[in-house]
C-alpha cells in the first residue's frame, strides 16, 4: 500500500570526525577529536537523500535521529537544513562508550517512542566505527526485515524493489513495509542545505531524549551495556623507501625478484 499512505521515514545519522582533517595521537593510538571538524557520516547523507527522494514521490515525513553528545545537535540541524521535517537527539551521559549492541538498544527505544514508522534508513556503515552492524542490529530489535547495502530503489504498488550489487552480480529484493534499509553511496547524490532549510534549522526545537525519556536503565546503555571492549588501538605508519635499480632489463628484473623474495612477496 505504498502509494496510499504518507510514509513515516526515520533516518538514523551519526556525527563523525571529518576524515579530511582528522589526526591521531601516536602515543595513545586514539583520535584527536579536536583536530577534526565534526560532520554527518558520509553514508548517512545518502540515507537522508533516499528519504528526501521517497518523500518527494510518495509524500510523508522524515524524522532524523542521532545518538551522541550534545554537539551532535549540529548534525541534526544540518539534516534539517537539508530538508528533514523533525529531529530528535538521543543524548545521556550514560550512553557514552556504547558499542553497536548498546547503540541499537537506544535507537530502537527512540524509534518505538515515535508515533509510528514505515521505513528506517541508515548508512551502510559509519566511517569511524566501520562495523556495518547498527543497521541490521536495529532491525532485529524493531522486529522488521533489513536489507543492507542498497544501491537502487524502485517502487511498486505494494512493495519496494531493492537492488544491491556485488562484484559478480546483483540481488533484487522485493520487500513490504515496514523495513530497514542500509544504503550505499552509489544510491544517489546527496543534496546540500537550502536557505529556507537553514532558517528552519535555526529555529526548530529539537528534543533531547535520555534514559528517562526512553525508559532505559543506564546499565543497559553506553559502556555498561556494551559487551565489546576496545583492548588496543594503534596508529600504523607507512615508511616509503626508494631505490633505483640499474643495469640491463634482465638484471633489473632479477634484482627486483630478489628483493620481493626477501620480503616474502614472491
Amino acid at each position: 500500500m505504498i502509494e496510499a499512505k504518507r510514509l513515516q521515514i526515520v533516518v538514523c545519522i551519526k556525527q563523525v570526525p571529518d576524515a579530511k582533517s582528522v589526526r591521531f595521537d601516536k602515543e595513545t593510538g586514539t583520535l584527536v577529536r579536536e583536530s577534526a571538524a565534526a560532520v554527518i557520516n558520509p553514508y548517512d547523507l545518502h540515507a537522508l537523500e533516499a528519504g528526501f527522494g521517497l518523500r518527494e514521490k510518495l509524500g510523508g515525513e522524515i524524522t532524523v535521529i542521532s545518538m551522541g553528545p550534545p554537539q551532535a545537535m549540529d548534525a541534526l540541524r544540518e539534516a534539517v537544513s537539508m530538508g528533514a521535517d523533525n529531529a530528535v537527539l538521543l543524548s545521556d551521559r550514560a550512553f557514552a562508550g556504547a558499542d553497536t549492541l548498546a547503540t541499537t538498544r537506544v535507537l530502537a527505544a527512540a524509534i518505538n517512542r515515535l508515533p509510528g514508522f514505515d521505513l528506517v534508513l541508515c548508512g551502510k556503515l559509519t566511517v569511524d566505527g566501520d562495523t556495518a552492524q547498527v543497521g541490521p542490529g536495529l532491525a532485529c530489535r524493531l522486529n522488521i526485515p533489513s536489507i543492507t547495502c542498497v544501491n537502487h530503489i524502485d517502487l511498486e504498488k505494494e512493495a519496494m524493489l531493492l537492488t544491491r550489487t556485488y562484484d559478480d552480480g546483483q540481488d533484487v529484493v522485493k520487500v513490504k513495509l515496514p523495513v530497514l534499509l542500509t544504503v550505499n553511496k552509489s544510491l544517489n547524490t546527496p543534496r546540500l542545505p537550502s536557505f529556507k532549510g537553514k532558517m528552519r534549522a535555526k529555529s526548530l526545537q529539537i528534543p533531547v531524549w535520555g534514559c528517562a525519556e526512553l525508559g532505559l536503565e543506564p546499565a543497559e546503555t553506553g559502556l555498561a551495556g556494551s559487551p565489546t571492549r576496545v583492548i588496543k588501538t594503534e596508529v600504523v605508519s607507512f615508511e616509503a623507501k626508494k631505490e633505483m635499480l640499474t643495469g640491463t632489463v634482465q638484471e633489473q628484473v632479477n634484482a627486483l625478484l630478489e628483493r620481493l623474495k626477501a620480503h616474502g612477496m614472491a
Binding site: 542545505p193 536557505f195 532558517m199 535555526k202
Partner: peptide, 14 residues
Amino acid sequence: TEEQQMIVDVAKNI
C-alpha cells in the same frame, strides 16, 4: 545580517 551570511554560506557550499 545572519540571513545574508546564510546566502553566502549556501552559495559557497554549492
